[in-house]
Simulated scan of single mutants.
Amino acid sequence: RTADKYGLVDIDSNRYLAGPDSARSRVLAAIRWDTVTLTSPATGELFAEHPRQYGRSRNVEDPALVLPRLAVKPRAWRESSIRPDVPDDIRAWLDSMDEKTLRESLKAIGDACRAAGFDPAMQACGEILRSNRDMGLHADSLTPIALRMRDGEWEYPGGIEEPDLSGYDRFITGTDDGGEER
């Protein structure tokens, strides 16, 4: 099959996303009763594997493949087909971002999705945004957290305990714990 300019391949009146890298190129489609696998005929590289859709006129898109396309054109975020799949708090945060931050955040989420999958990436986004909404989303912090969440190794450490500096206070002020001078 040949993918269109968006990387979508038409199979039985349904459109399956192979990804933006495969736009306007030949794609090998393995159509089974339960899955559609899209690969490169030249290299055998796996572009995507989707559940097979029966019925007519549906777009089947993996959010991990859509996000890099959105990072290139961040203004398309509000009308994207995957926007409803994003949890409410993350969607609201992305909606409030300026174009540059939105572009960087969508790219970071796309990188995390490719590495760990959509659900762990969304969980990692939620953790980062809960701890610091002003920080933004960056691949160097988001991807490792998403991978650890995927593997079940992540427990959010919560607030960092502040060190006990009372010994320094006593030393500098010359008082004991009760406030009396020594």
Rank of each mutant, 00 (worst) to 15 (best):
I82G: 10
D111A: 15
S80K: 03
S96E: 13
G55I: 06
A92Y: 01
E61C: 07
L46Q: 01
F47A: 11
D111L: 15
L102N: 03
L67Y: 00
R58T: 12
P68K: 04
M97W: 00
D98P: 03
P51N: 02
R114V: 03
A116D: 04
V66H: 10
G55P: 02
L106F: 05
A71W: 10
K73S: 14
E99N: 08
E104F: 02
K100F: 02
A92H: 04
K107Y: 05
R69C: 04
R56A: 13
L94Y: 12
D111I: 14
D88F: 09
R78V: 14
R103L: 02
R103S: 14
V66W: 08
W93Q: 01
W77G: 00
E79C: 15
L106E: 00
W77A: 00
S81N: 06
M97E: 10
A64M: 09
C113E: 02
A76G: 00
A48K: 03
E49K: 10
R52P: 02
W77K: 03
L102V: 07
I90A: 13
D111R: 12
D85E: 10
L94G: 02
R91A: 07
R78Q: 15
D111V: 14
D88W: 06
L102F: 04
D111S: 15
K100A: 07
D89R: 14
L70K: 04
P74T: 06
L94I: 06
F47K: 11
R78G: 11
V66F: 06
Q53H: 12
E61M: 09
Y54E: 07
V60D: 04
P87Q: 05
P63S: 10
K100N: 09
D62I: 08
